[in-house]
Design a protein around this nucleic acid. Structure first.
Lengths: 188, 188
DNA sequence: TGGGGGTGCGGCAATTTGTCGTGGTGCGGT
DNA sequence: ACCGCACCACGACAAATTGCCGCACCCCCA
């Protein structure tokens, strides 16, 4: 089923990538890079949306504030919040405002589509809690921060509060490299 | 204003502590240690609840499943989910099911009361995201896991995947000790 | 044609971890 | 009462990791 999907994301690479891969799946995709252009787009669009992927962090303004306008435009739209560094408070706020689901980058296309189709509240009582190992927690956080800095090791090391050399060495240990593009592209 | 408050929490210490301190604030507090007793309590209780504090992790069963019964009993009840180790998926699920807010332990009494009175969705657009330092992230995670194991260093070290000796040394560095009880008790 | 910033990498001292071992302390079973 | 077991707090020492140099090299931009 081809759906009407809105993508609001300020990072060019991710935005075009999402657009490309969703279009390939024969959806109709419209994109916006800022809150303003998103609102403008909604204003002059007659056909309702089926889904929307909103970045929480849109430069100056907050993606949370787009939830209401989108729902006002298309009450049945499923909204997925996407964010570089996610937190529980923002997840709660987004959900309360009507978002359907909430993901943190890096997320694979499967993650995104799954999050849009899943019913996080009603059906899935997600497994209670498995306390993650320190190493895993650390690694995921590093990946997140790195991603947030577009792979800039120096900048990431600075905000992580560790030495650049150390980050470099740690990254080399786990050859995980950057699965990001691969995940998005392997699908067509 | 004295309120009718329900506390469902399987840890004895925390449950009684919450009960004590909430009672001191002249609220009417009822407690339950399991999902069953919570349901039983609801069944034979005529007066509606104003607030409920539910532990997500109730031994075998899931605190999420208590949200609907509580709301069925008292539609205006404000539900606070409390959990040892919180995750974004469970926070989203809880909120979608009607929880008012979601906190991770250790939480001070102020945190809890604030979370109950705040309106996370509508008013507060919580600050987007500040990428935390690796050290802080690590420290908070350690505290959480430690708390989840009731301060048992050996067990915490095991689930963290680090050596017990190392945990011991790290804990000694930051003299933070256990602010937990103090936080709860300093209020009366 | 210089900065200025980023990346990778080698080397080396300083710090931190892993792994021993020794004592001490509660708690439950016999 | 005694034993076993699991916990905590240390000390000591080798192994691993980190911090901090330096160097070469790229790319961008004024």
């Amino acid at each position: 089923m081809t759906q009407q999907i809105l993508v609001v994301e300020d990072d060019v690479a991710l935005r075009t990538q999402l657009q490309r891969v969703l279009t390939r799946r024969s959806h109709d995709v419209v994109t916006a890079a800022s809150a303003e252009s998103c609102l403008a787009l909604l204003a002059e669009r007659p056909v309702p949306l089926d889904a929307a992927i909103l970045d929480l962090n849109l430069g100056e303004d907050n993606g949370l504030d787009l939830i209401e306008p989108v729902l006002a435009h298309s009450p049945d739209c499923r909204i997925l919040m996407l964010t570089g560094y996610g937190s529980i408070p923002t997840a709660v706020a987004a959900t309360r405002r009507g978002a359907h689901n909430y993901l943190t980058k890096p997320a694979s296309l499967d993650d995104i589509l799954g999050a849009l189709s899943a019913n996080p509240g009603t059906e899935t009582p997600p497994l209670p809690s498995a306390p993650p190992s320190l190493e895993r927690l650390e690694w995921e956080h590093i990946q997140r921060v790195l991603e947030e800095h577009d792979g800039n090791i120096s900048a990431a090391a600075r905000t992580l509060g560790i030495h650049r050399r150390t980050l470099q060495r740690r990254l080399k240990k786990r050859p995980s490299a950057n699965d990001y593009d691969r995940d998005y592209d392997r699908d067509y």
